[in-house]
Simulated assay, not measured.
Amino acid sequence: MDNVYDTLIIGGGPGGLTAAVYLRRFRREVMLVDKGNSRLDLIPVTHNFPGFPDGIRGLQLLDNLRCQLGRYGGAVTPGEVSGLRREGDCFVAAFEGGEVRSRTVLIATGIADAGLPVENWREAVAAGAVRLCPVCDGFDVLDKRIAIVSSPENPVSHALFMRTFSASVTLFERDRESAMPAEHQQQLRDAGVRYIASPVLGVTMSHAMKPVIHTEDGEDHHADVVYPMLGESARSDLAAGLGAATADCLALEVDEYQCTTVAGLYAIGDVVKGLNQISVAAGHAAIAATHIHNTLPRRFR
């Protein structure tokens, strides 16, 4: 059993890296595999992660966590786990043409955003013209002209939430099949939110990197920032393939120790049902890693 890891961590975002730091400090043998799709590397600066009063770039936070893991003999292995199965007391993961065996597995694979035509997507996100999380950065767009594209799950709640931060909030309809109920339209009017019923065709950027929202009626609407509210699905296929229960948007269901419905299979961060935040992922990681350590056979050195 010397070639069996204590824990295989799949995903090297803030959650996976934090869990790896904890487990290495517990003297556990860990392999962390990451294919480089962390949403954190899209974030130009986050201002609501504790301990950084001036904010920190997403890439810098990832670098800091990798460096911290390296201090304890850990590292990130680039690549993708393409399959996961159970054999006796171990999990077996298919990886780069070979196999990796571990006693436990921690899924930290995050979510995949759905699509909306946005010109120069990465550049627009880097410039702060396109934003992905009202909870994360609403305070950072105080008094800006805010455009929000409706989502089927929360047709008006995001617009009402952002009204806290600006008097200029416009909600755009995503598609022509959606019919805004009268009570929702009244909520918008009561809050002073403008509503554009003509569906969005796409978003382009002005020369000053400001979003221009193009609607089906031929109108162009200028804003300072746009929240496309893309919709999402959790990257939970590896866990679901083992029978782990999922909820809305394929998010994994976990218990108070971040364990899925499959024994020994844990999940943390955005792939889990709940609030998608960096600090939440870090908290998940601490809980899961500590429980994993306490449930694995002890090693006395």
Rank of each mutant, 00 (worst) to 15 (best):
I10V: 10
G15H: 01
L17I: 03
A19G: 13
R27K: 12
M31R: 14
M31V: 15
V33W: 07
G36N: 06
I43F: 04
P50K: 07
F52C: 07
F52I: 09
Q60A: 05
L61F: 13
L62H: 00
R66L: 09
C67L: 11
L69D: 02
Y72H: 10
G73V: 03
S82N: 12
L84K: 13
R85F: 03
G88L: 11
V92F: 07
A94T: 15
E96H: 12
V100N: 02
R101H: 14
R103Q: 09
T104S: 12
D113L: 14
G115F: 15
E123N: 12
E123Y: 01
E123C: 10
A127E: 11
A129G: 01
V135H: 06
D137S: 09
G138F: 02
D140S: 13
D140E: 15
I146Q: 02
S150K: 13
P152F: 09
E153A: 12
A167N: 14
E177P: 07
P181L: 13
E183N: 08
H184C: 11
Q185L: 15
D190I: 01
G202R: 07
M209G: 06
P211L: 01
E219Q: 10
H221M: 01
D224M: 04
L230V: 05
A234E: 06
R235P: 09
S236A: 11
S236M: 12
A239K: 13
L252F: 10
E253A: 11
V254A: 09
E256S: 14
Y257K: 08
Y266I: 06
G269F: 02
D270I: 02
V271L: 12
V271F: 08
G274T: 03
L275K: 13
G283Y: 02
H284I: 00
H291L: 07
N294F: 13
R298A: 14
